[in-house]
Design a protein around this nucleic acid. Structure first.
Length: 829
DNA sequence: ATCTCATTATTTTTT
DNA sequence: ATAATGAGAT
């Protein structure tokens, strides 16, 4: 019965016209002294200063209390944007202006949605559970689409394809067209479709030029064919999660009207990141007939718009008041995060951009002890990594200012992910804990995707892409020939491949061997499907992986990564426990692709500037400020002036992540595509105000660089004082070898922890899931501990080993309870 | 089916 | 330089 979608609240359960001040807004329990009491008071017109409004500055308070009519909040970095958003929602609820289910609150990422939900929960308690329309554009899109799927030719149990599925599907289509899939890469076309959908363009709407540019002019046909194929597969891509609702709203005014009635208040986070499709979606929902208040509140910062390359339109934020006449615009410029120097540097930099709405951040907490932003020079990227490592250790030991700093409070923010490697190498040799954030995710791993394909096919027998993925994984002797025959047969009859396989059993089309193998697959899936309703889903999942031989396949694989993959599969099953059904789980996974991080580990974060948006750290290191890398050459080539401005905003985002300390680095030599290139300091360095910036004189081991201090062409002008011996081939080779030597030290140091959030396959020799180092060498090194050993862990204190699994120990800690930790993190007590 | 050789691209990333 | 992908050979 439970299909996993039952819990979608809809119109029926609540009155359509909610009273302006409902008698009983919620039944949910209230926190002590909570909102409900105040709501009552508010209703009685005797409004005491609500506690949740305390501590807001006047602008924030205005943004919270201006609840009716369109509002644009321009919230600079660190000005309490999330606080305003969450308090505003709490305020709407507390004053009884709407039911929780009548508020539409949209974010971009799941993380942001989660955080918002949490923080609203703190303010209003359980009431937040009644907010089904708090989520990402996509998750809300899915919800809408499940309800109205039939209007766009889908069934409500449609599958959501991810990029990988999409590419495979497009590749098939390209081949079916008789085109060379080398010359016309499916990946590229998938990208084009994505771009079109970001702009809200269907196959009929794309510009002629675009249509002609691909596949000998067949671009449009291909796009048509793709949409048709999705329909037969009962599937959607990410873009459709926005496009379909838009077309439903456009073609069914009655339905749109229902939603207008439902959503009394609409809030959008990170408005500067909305693309055209999201903008259209939003406008359809938010715009009301004349005279009806449009209670839209968009929050964003034009200076932090860094996703133009994936379709974000800063223009959306710039023209808000044209779309919503009478909009109140509130600027939040009071910064609670950074020192005066950091704000001064960031503000001066970003002032070089044109076409801003114009905000200047200020702080009232300036302090004479505040450190200026420091610019450092290094000879090459290796020295840069070494120097940053030293600075981190200095802070950690506390000999810079007498305070010991946590690694958790420091981050290295790079422009491009290849920069990370050098830092990783260095930190590994230093034994410095770090975590890498971003990159390929857990759910994108081969084994996870395979397993998911099995689950998908059990839940959705029409999922041909899933079938094709696993039909011969593990090897069953169902090679290309058989699959093609099956494919053709299915296509000819317009039936899903799994059903076609069953039919093929009764024919002589296949050789006996293939027929037998196919028969086994079909019966397996039939059996699993029959178990779907009555078997606990985690149990069924395990059963599927076992009976299909998938687990065995990896058990028999003796390659280095096999144990890790098995571990990942276990982790997958474990993470299913949190869900009610397999369907619920699949839905979650298709939309939520991020991994949690292990907060317990004290480690330096390494990430790209893009993934740092929204975060803050005491100390921020910004390496690689060189022309060509930052601003990136490609951004300049392809984006021209606006490309440069986006890079500058990225620099601004980087600077404003720092609370207390910010160290910028540039090097004279960097290896790009394998070749050493000499580089020029970034133009952004010249755009920093001298009053807030120090140029470090001391830390270059080659000396003399920043010490010149003069202003010629550039303060950071290329010093010819660098001896050219460093560019001889011999020196280069020496450098290269040195790096190799360091790399081989990987993992030899005990007590050194590495956490890869997301990054799984790529890091040197080791991989982790969600903070756990996984099976690096489970088989060849027996644990140095035994059950019962007394051990000490830096974070959890003393405890006893209760179980050992490879390099992972289960330990009963005296204070922290039972935890699973890596051997390397504990020592004998 | 598996392995080897060659070709290619190599900013940023969510859903 | 390098890593990852894909085609062709065995």
């Amino acid at each position: 019965m439970s299909n996993g979608f039952d819990d979608i609240p809809f119109f029926d359960e609540e009155p359509d016209e909610a009273p302006r001040r409902p008698q009983q807004p919620v039944q949910a329990p209230q926190p002590a002294g909570g909102i409900a009491a105040r709501a009552m008071a508010a209703r009685d017109g005797n409004r005491p200063p609500a506690a949740y409004l305390n501590g807001l500055n006047p602008e924030q308070r205005k943004a919270v209390e201006t609840v009716d009519g369109p509002v644009l909040v321009l919230a600079g970095a660190g000005t309490g944007k999330t606080r305003v958003l969450t308090t505003r929602i709490a305020h709407i609820l507390a004053t009884g202006s709407a039911y929780p289910s009548q508020i539409l609150a949209v974010t971009f990422t799941n993380k942001a949605a989660r955080e918002m939900k949490e923080r609203i929960g703190v303010l209003v308690g359980e009431m937040v559970e009644g907010m089904p329309w708090l989520g990402t554009f996509h998750s809300i899109g899915v919800k809408l689409l499940r309800r109205h799927a039939e209007l766009v030719g889908l069934r409500s149990d449609f599958t959501i394809l991810d990029t990988d599925d999409v590419v495979r599907l497009i590749k098939q289509l390209i081949q079916a067209e008789g085109l060379d899939d080398k010359r016309w890469p499916a990946r590229q076309f998938a990208g084009m479709i994505d771009t079109w959908k970001n702009k809200g363009l269907g196959p009929a709407d794309i510009p002629e030029g675009d249509a002609r540019a691909f596949a000998n002019g067949k671009g449009r046909e291909l796009y048509h064919a793709y949409q048709a194929r999705l329909k037969t597969l009962n599937a959607c891509d990410f873009g459709d999660l926005l496009m379909h609702p838009i077309s439903i709203f456009r073609n069914h005014p009655d339905i749109l009207k229902d939603y207008h009635a439902r959503f009394r208040y609409i809030l959008v986070d990170e408005y500067q990141d909305t693309n055209t499709a999201q903008y259209m979606w939003l406008r359809l929902l938010a715009q009301r007939p004349k005279g009806v208040p449009q209670n839209v509140c968009c929050v964003g910062d034009d200076d932090q718009s860094i996703y133009g390359w994936r379709g974000a339109e800063v223009d959306n934020i710039l023209r808000f008041d044209k779309d919503f006449p009478g909009a109140v615009i509130i600027k939040l410029e009071r910064n609670y995060r950074s020192t005066e120097h950091i704000l001064g540097a960031a503000g001066h930099l970003i002032a070089h951009n044109e076409g801003r709405l114009g905000k200047t951040l200020f702080t009232e907490r300036a302090n004479d002890d505040d450190e200026k932003v420091v610019v450092h020079a290094a000879w090459d990227s290796e020295e840069e990594a070494r120097a940053v490592g030293e600075e981190i250790e200095r802070l950690q030991r506390g000999d810079a200012d007498g305070k010991k700093h946590n690694l958790n409070d420091m981050a290295i923010l790079v422009r491009a992910s290849f920069q990370m490697r050098e830092f990783e190498d260095r930190f590994v040799t230093l034994g410095l804990n770090y975590r890498v954030i971003g990159g390929p995710r857990f759910y994108e791993r081969l084994e996870i995707r395979d397993a998911m394909a099995y689950f998908r096919l059990v839940c959705q027998p029409a999922d041909d892409l899933a079938l094709e993925r696993i039909i011969n994984t593990p090897k069953r002797g169902l090679g290309d020939t058989t699959v093609r025959a099956l494919h053709d047969y299915a296509r000819g009859r317009d039936t899903p491949m799994l059903a076609a396989a069953a039919e093929l059993m009764d024919t002589d089309e296949l050789k006996p061997k293939a027929r037998k193998a196919l028969f086994d697959v079909v019966t397996d899936f039939r059996r699993w499907q029959s178990l779907l309703e009555n078997t606990p889903h985690t149990e069924l999942a395990e059963q599927i992986l076992d009976e299909s031989g998938y687990t065995a396949m990896w058990q028999n694989d003796k390659s280095a990564e096999a144990p890790g993959r098995l571990e990942n599969l276990k982790e997958l099953i474990r993470s299913m426990e949190a869900f009610e059904s397999m369907r619920g789980f699949l839905e979650h996974v298709s939309l939520v692709m991020d991994a949690e991080q292990n907060e317990n580990l004290d480690a330096v974060s390494i990430m790209t500037l893009h993934s740092a948006k929204g975060l803050e750290f005491d100390t921020v290191f910004l390496p690689g400020w060189e022309e060509g890398l930052f601003p990136h050459q490609r951004a300049l080539d392809e984006g021209g002036r606006s490309g440069l401005e986006e890079e500058r905003r990225l620099a601004y985002v980087g600077l404003t992540r720092a609370k207390r300390r910010c160290h910028i680095w540039f090097v004279s030599n960097r290896r790009i595509h394998g070749l050493w290139q000499s580089t020029l300091p970034s133009r952004f360095l010249d755009e920093l105000p001298p009053a807030h910036v120090d140029v470090s004189a001391s830390d270059s081991s080659y000396g003399g660089y920043g010490g010149r201090g003069g202003y010629g062409q550039s303060r950071f002008d290329k010093a010819d004082s660098f001896s050219n011996t460093y560019s001889t081939p011999g020196w280069k080779r020496a450098q290269a070898n040195k790096t190799d030597a360091t790399r081989n030290n990987w993992g030899t140091r005990s007590g050194h922890a590495v956490e890869r959030i997301g990054y799984g396959e790529s890091g040197p020799k080791s991989r982790t899931i969600e903070g756990e180092l996984v099976a690096k060498s489970t088989s060849d090194t027996p644990s140095k501990f035994t059950v019962g050993d007394r051990v000490f862990h830096i974070k959890f204190g003393n405890g006893n080993v209760s179980a050992i699994e490879g390099n992972k120990l289960t330990i009963d800690f005296d204070r922290a309870g039972q935890k699973r930790v890596l051997e390397g993190f504990v020592e004998r007590a």
